[in-house]
């Protein structure tokens, strides 16, 4: 057999559609993960409850210590045992969210540490508290300093979505498999898929510098 480039051209439209789904899944999962992680970070910092913090530490350790694939299986196969039947797509989003949030919490912890302690006190003495304190003062600074690791985390999520093909979420990887199991040209189809993933991740990871500059300028 020879490498036949025409199979790449034939597959390209469907692969690009798959890439769009991949982007959607990644963006959706990442947004949920940021929301969840932000919420947890605020609760952690504001209440400083031993039990809650202990539980979060346990959760982070578990997520970081086990393969995402196993986490996906746990959610996809185990939740139904408890009567919660999720379709592949929401199950996949849930797995990605829970996984990524653990890493985002750690990133935000780093970002938060770079916000001077005095700002909490200064805000309090000005009578700013709760919602306004976090929303207007602490979070913007935390997120801006966290841009590079957050962008890195997003590329991780982008790559992670490929695992959802295992529970039949029809994203880029799955589309690719569907195509080559029909035309029996896995080498060509997978090569094209490989390049598409590369372009997506590469562009995203290089955007870090750009984003950083943009937000730095806006702030000053």
């Amino acid at each position: 057999m020879k490498f036949d480039i025409s199979y790449i051209f034939d597959a390209l439209p469907r692969l690009l559609e798959g890439a769009l789904i991949t982007l959607q899944v990644a963006i959706l999962g990442f947004c949920f993960s940021i929301i969840l992680a932000t919420f947890i970070t605020i609760v952690k910092t504001s209440f400083n409850s031993r039990i809650f913090n202990g539980f979060i530490a346990f959760y982070i350790s578990f997520i970081r210590g086990t393969p995402l694939l196993v986490q996906i299986f746990l959610i996809y196969y185990v939740l139904p045992v408890f009567g919660l039947n999720l379709a592949p797509f929401p199950a996949g989003i849930l797995a990605i969210t829970l996984n990524s949030a653990a890493f985002v919490i750690e990133i935000l912890r780093g970002g938060l540490a770079s916000v001077p302690k005095g700002q909490f006190e200064a805000a309090k003495s000005l009578g700013i508290s709760g919602y306004a304190l976090w929303w207007k003062i602490i979070l913007p600074q935390t997120f801006i300093t966290s841009i590079p690791p957050l962008v890195n985390e997003f590329t991780m999520v982008l790559k992670a979505t490929a695992l959802l093909s295992v529970i039949t979420v029809v994203e880029l990887m799955r589309v690719s498999q569907q195509i080559y199991s029909a035309n029996y040209h896995p080498v060509e189809v997978l090569s094209a898929t490989f390049i598409i993933y590369f372009l997506m991740c590469f562009v995203v990871s290089r955007s870090s510098v750009f984003l950083e500059q943009r937000f730095k300028v806006k702030r000053s």
Partner: peptide
């Protein structure tokens, strides 16, 4: 380095699985 760092491991696995015999 950049190709392998910027793609999901699962597709690398499948590529190896099909390309090597190819």
């Amino acid at each position: 380095i950049e190709l392998f760092r910027n793609t999901p491991f699962i597709i690398q696995v499948f590529l190896f699985y099909y390309v090597l015999p190819f």
